[in-house]
Write a protein that binds this DNA or RNA. Structure first.
Lengths: 153, 153
DNA sequence: TTTATATAGTTGTCTATGCAACTATTATTC
DNA sequence: GAATAATAGTTGCATAGACAACTATATAAA
């Protein structure tokens, strides 16, 4: 059980981290018998919906950096869920596709992921859920901009 | 830059994870010259505010599990920021205290952490911020309960 | 009291992540 | 056209985290 801070002066990043890990853990437990982690699942899901992306695009859509994407794809590949094809126009890059097994896994597990999201949402009204999503996306944009600005200096 | 999903059908855990990592990365960059990570910082901060806790209590307040807490304390200890004292009543446990250097580091870096939180909050009104915090805590409670219930079955 | 159980921490293994340094290929620019 | 810079990915290293198995101590039950 998490008691968390007590002081009422919780930094937003801190609560968000704790809450995120809780949700990820719940999803991980539910996905356990399918032998796939939540992060691998989100990457595979993206690929399933947009076959033939290059890794940079996958990284961008899933919010991961290049090394993390490389390694998650390695895991998915060794499980036989995706495969890479050398780019024709640009030989630096690879096009990534999901295998039949990968597609089947997504078909089987999509209800699990959706179920977890539903369960989580159950403690919020639909207005509250919409607000929460909006706030998170806004913060994401905002912090991305801060980091980018800092780097240019 | 993060483009994220596109479909408008983003799972809440997914956006929360991406956003959390963004904030953590920003804080990490700001703390870099002080040679401490955001997670180590949050543990040290808790200790600084409540000297003499046992590890279980620290784990509970920072939302971390036992092994993670052990290892973060190891890092803090090897940096000379905290020390452990064997429990007197209960010899299984340790009481954890921050050193002078640990206290000084928190004095120096507290404005950094607060500054990052302020920067992040800048894209939300104070009402929105209060709502966001409330939603996150509510979800945290809710998911904790789901996991606990599942485990008892 | 002796056996069983619960609790506090630690250690090992694996995944995910951030950062920096690296290779290979493509684009620029001189 | 050759030198330079930018881009796509990979690899190494370190921290954080989830989970399971473990040690040691304390509590409960028999």
């Amino acid at each position: 059980m998490t008691t968390l801070d007590q002081s009422g002066n919780l930094a937003i990043g801190f609560i968000m981290g704790v809450t995120y890990r809780k949700i990820a853990t719940l999803l991980q437990k539910r996905l356990k018998e399918h032998d796939i982690t939540p992060e691998q699942w989100s990457v595979l899901h993206q690929i399933d919906r947009s076959e033939g992306m290059i890794q940079r695009e996958i990284a961008s859509r899933t919010g991961k950096d290049k090394p993390t994407t490389t390694r998650i794809l390695d895991h998915l590949e060794s499980k036989g869920l995706v495969y890479k094809q050398t780019g024709l126009q640009d030989r630096r890059s690879f096009l990534v596709y999901s295998t039949e097994r990968g597609k089947e896994l997504i078909r089987e597990t999509l209800p699990i992921e959706e179920g977890v999201t539903e369960e989580v949402k159950r403690c919020l009204s639909s207005e509250e859920y919409a607000l929460l999503t909006e706030f998170l996306l806004r913060i994401n944009e905002h912090v991305t901009q801060i980091i980018d600005t800092n780097e240019k200096e």
